[in-house]
Every structure is written in C-alpha cells, then in structure tokens.
C-alpha cells in the first residue's frame, strides 16, 4: 500500500505532459487545463491507495481528470455561466461559423480537432492520440464500446471533412493537413 503511494507520486510527475495535453484538449484552454491537472493530481494522491498496481495508470489519471472537468461543466451550468468562446479559441484560433466556413477554407488538423463536439473529441484523443483500445477508452469514458465506435467514426469523418482529408485523395491531403 505504502509503495503504491510512492509509485503514484513518481508516475504522476512523469505523466504530467500527457495529462496536461489531454486537459488542454478537452478544456480548450491552457489556464483551465493547468488548474485541472493540479486538481487531478491532488485527487489522485488523495486516492493513491486505491490505484490498482497492475492497471493502467494513464487510464486512471485521464478518468480522474475528465470527471473533474465534467464537474466543472456542471457547476458552470448551474451557475449559468456561459462557456467562454474566447477561451475555446486559445488552442486553435477562431472557428467562426463552423458550417459555412468549413466549405470555404480548410482548417488545420489541430483546429478541426478543437472544433469537434466534446464527445467526439475525447474519444479521438484517447484512441488515436493516446492509443487506447476501444475497450480501454470505453472504460475511461464510462460508455459502451459501441458508443466509442460510433463516436470515433463520426469524429474521424468530421475531422477529414474539416481538414480536407478526402476519401479520394486521402494521402496527399493529409500530408498538407499535417504540415
């Protein structure tokens, strides 16, 4: 038990860059993300004894952080606070009228990811960026694996469309989108 605590502490520090990236991606703001990361670390340390040594540490941390984020959103909703659009733009720049603009200008992949609906973005992050299996992602997000698959497929279709990764010329367009 005690060694688990020490273990969690050490892994936590090593995992900070990944945790922060996930926080930035789901919150859309660096400031919010840093608060979230700090709160998640606090909670993880407070519950360090409950971490099961054989299980995935990253999954455990992402889950903690995401739950804190959901709490935050709920509180905001209760308090009637509007999602600050300017904060959202912190990561990817202005998105403008999503539908109209998408047809006119291609977005960078980063912008397109930032513009995805939250539920699609988090699945995309876990599977495509953090390389979780569908099952593992389902566990972190507390949703059925079928939901992971449908959201992930939609996320990728949307991403492809927004960033100009088209079915007919997937390869060449992606290279453009990436670089």
């Amino acid at each position: 038990m005690s060694n688990t605590v020490k273990d969690v502490g050490e892994r936590l520090i090593a995992f900070l860059p990944n945790l922060r990236r996930f926080a930035i991606s789901i919150s859309g703001s660096r400031d919010l993300a840093d608060d979230l990361v700090q709160a998640a670390c606090e909670r993880a340390l407070a519950n360090a004894e409950r971490f099961e040594p054989g299980s995935r540490f990253d999954a455990w941390m992402f889950r903690i952080l995401r739950n804190l984020w959901i709490d935050h959103l709920r509180r905001q909703k209760t308090a009637g606070v509007q999602d600050d659009i300017s904060e959202r733009q912190d990561i990817a720049g202005p998105s403008g009228e999503r539908e109209a603009e998408a047809r006119l200008t291609l977005k960078t992949v980063t912008e397109a990811i930032a513009d995805l609906p939250d539920e699609q973005r988090e699945v995309l992050l876990l599977v495509c960026v953090e390389e979780f299996s569908y099952r593992e992602a389902a566990d972190v997000l507390d949703i059925p694996i079928g939901t992971v698959m449908s959201r992930l497929a939609r996320a990728r279709k949307n991403l492809a469309e927004a960033a100009g990764i088209t079915e007919t010329s997937a390869r060449s367009q992606t290279m453009k989108g990436v670089n």
């Binding site: 860059p17 992050l125 495509c128 960026v129 497929a153 991403l159 997937a170």
Partner: peptide, 28 residues
C-alpha cells in the same frame, strides 16, 4: 480505409507539439 488510417495519423501528429511544450514551472 485509408481515410481512417490517415485521420488517426493526422490527429497524433497534430497533437504532438502539445506534449513537447515545456510544463509551466508553477504547475510542475
């Protein structure tokens, strides 16, 4: 099929810089 391979690759590449960003000193 390529579309799904490419989107995965594109997402991973696009998010890489965030991982390489130095951590804010006070957070660390």
């Amino acid at each position: 099929v390529a579309l799904f391979i490419e989107t995965r690759h594109a997402a991973k590449t696009a998010m890489k810089p965030l991982l390489e960003e130095p951590l804010p000193a006070d957070l660390e």
